[in-house]
Amino acid sequence: MAGTVGALSGVALGTGQSRAEAPAPGAEGWQAVPAPGSVPAAQLRSAAAAGPRLAWAVGEERYGGPSQALAMVWNGDGWAKSDLSHLDHTQLTAVAGVCPASAWSVGRPAGDGSPLLRWDGATWREVTFPGRGEPDVRLTSVAVGPDRQVWICGSRGGAVRLLHGDGRRWRWLDPLPVASVNLYGVVVGPRGAVWVSGDRSNGGGWSGLVARWDGAWTVLPPITGLRLGIADLHAAGPDDVWAVGTEAGVGGPPGRPGNPALSHWDGTAWTRVEAGFTVGSLTGIAGDAQGRAAWISGWNFQDQSRSTYLRRDGDAWVVVRGPAGGAPAPYLNAVTSVPGTTGFWSVGMTSPSPYPPTEAYTERHHA
């Protein structure tokens, strides 16, 4: 979900003890990596990695006008723009994949319905699924489990639900039993549990929403706030869930930055954790090889000279700045781990507004 804001210094979980911003020698392993070929204004909204020599990133180019879908592929040596001339889509919003034969993306079409795309080894191709082309079908995010099962959050028939399949057979699952909901993210957690996140109406605005599917829906209590939405989550288990997003607050001029929102679920209740900066957003979260939440991508409105992250440090989150000089005012939309390594990718754009022309942007982390 592009267009949020934030600033941080780590806070010990549940203690309220803040940690100073971490020093950034070598930007703590983050480095800017060129992602050439996009037509400004351009941004990457989502990324996924199958390993150190294969990753995907998707988004849009020419946005601010008649936008077009944008996709990049990493081959171990560099990013290359994928040819999408056969597609008629305005943007790709999410990507997930575990191997060349099981990588998927969803996006927004120029016409009716939402497309489901599969990687064919060279580019993205539309595939058939129940509801394809129906004007009320919306696919908003996608996740792929280690078993290559595909989980897509979206809506059909006026109800928010999951589409589940293996690439050959697909079925829509029971509707989420909550009214007035928007879903922005889906992830596969331990033991096959599937988690979704977004926001829900609370009468005068909206609150953060997190729910779990394990054969039936379990809807967690709302994450309260002043117009608060959840962009991404990480679930290490039913009693250890981190949710990140933005709280829009009350009123203000158009384009007013929000506030970063970080919350933890311990199996009983949500605890809001101070982000360490007060104006901006938290956009993505990724776990380490042990399954623990490890890195959060964000945007610090009050200091845009470098990218902003939160790094897990024991029982605290610490603010880390990205590399200097990688982009004029980098904005990160997502962060993802690289399987089989201790590395991570983050993706976004070189500045948070279309003008001056922003371009696709990526950073890579080496431990």
Rank of each mutant, 00 (worst) to 15 (best):
D313N: 13
A69I: 03
P354H: 09
G26T: 06
G284L: 10
G215R: 13
P260S: 11
V98D: 01
R311E: 14
D266H: 07
G51N: 05
G37Q: 10
D239F: 02
W299D: 13
G287H: 05
R292C: 00
D303F: 07
D288Q: 06
E126Q: 12
S351E: 13
R171A: 10
G291P: 09
G29I: 06
P40F: 07
V186G: 00
G237I: 10
N259M: 15
P352Y: 08
P238M: 02
V181C: 07
N300L: 03
R19D: 04
W104F: 03
L13E: 03
A261V: 05
I230E: 01
V219W: 07
P23C: 06
G145C: 04
L176P: 06
S18N: 03
V273A: 11
G154D: 05
H366I: 07
W151H: 06
S9A: 12
R200M: 07
A35S: 15
P254N: 10
A101V: 00
V150S: 00
G322V: 12
P34H: 07
V250C: 06
G225H: 05
T362C: 08
L209T: 05
P135V: 05
V95Y: 04
F344L: 09
R272H: 15
G14D: 00
V150E: 01
E247Q: 15
G198N: 11
G6M: 06
L176T: 01
P323R: 09
Y355T: 11
A12N: 01
